[in-house]
Design a protein around this nucleic acid. Structure first.
Lengths: 134, 134
DNA sequence: TATTGTTATACTCTATAACTATA
DNA sequence: TATAGTTATAGAGTATAACAATA
């Protein structure tokens, strides 16, 4: 059931996000980028392999939504949202919030309960149901 | 977060199930098969396209875990678990139950709360957190 | 030598469309 | 002509392994 619900939520996100001409994983990445983030850290936050971030970053960069900025340690590249990227991020967050099954089928109170349970499952803290930890 | 939690749960299922030499989607299908089920109905229960069931059934059949039995309407094929299939199903259910994040990180009470919330999300009834409706 | 990011590749899961057989 | 299942194919999402650059 948990998996079914997540698939449903995922499909909702994909649908909510499609009108903006962006794929779900790119949207997910962009939503995390409210502050400059090393690629390695992005991978941890998205619970995926770092090599995958390279591809996401390539596409987001090609779309003019982010840029790669070298850090003080010059092995590190910070992903930072452009002005367009930030604007889109706000739009995406709103579209997802209003279209998601979570918003549609759950009261605010139930959503809070869910967030609490999911926090236990993940064994870490989180506050937002759609985008992970900031 | 919901998506992260589900991915975590999914990864757990895959890991719990790997020692039995079976892939996660096959395990998921087999877990549903505690009674003979038309392929069409399987697709609905797994919330996937019927064409996908063909492939799953092919593999399960090749592994000797299920057989296809024609129904009274001879267009319909019932999937029915073999003796080996039933034995494996029991083993899988146990392995998943003991290894899943859901069992490890959540009390029975919290799991019940989660099931209730997920039921609301899906807008249908369900009783089992790992395998969907019987 | 250890770490960051990149490249090339390949794998898993799943859907679409066109088809066959039965109703 | 409508429905159940099949086939072939294609696509999305993601990982693995070998690599380059920097530390």
């Amino acid at each position: 059931m948990l998996i079914l619900a997540a698939e449903r939520a995922k499909a909702d996100v994909a649908e909510a996000v499609a009108p903006f001409g962006i794929a779900a994983p790119l949207a997910r990445a962009l939503l995390i980028l409210d502050s400059p983030t090393p690629m390695r850290e992005m991978a941890q936050q998205m619970a995926c392999d770092p090599s995958y971030i390279t591809g996401l970053a390539d596409q987001l960069e090609a779309d003019g939504l982010i840029t790669r900025v070298p850090g003080s340690d010059r092995r590190i590249k910070l992903l930072v949202a452009t002005e367009r990227g930030n604007a889109l991020r706000a739009d995406l967050a709103e579209a997802i919030a209003t279209k998601s099954v979570l918003e549609r089928n759950l009261s605010a109170e139930r959503r809070a309960d869910l967030a609490s349970i999911l926090t236990d499952i993940l064994g870490s803290t989180g506050e937002d149901l759609v985008a992970p930890q900031h």
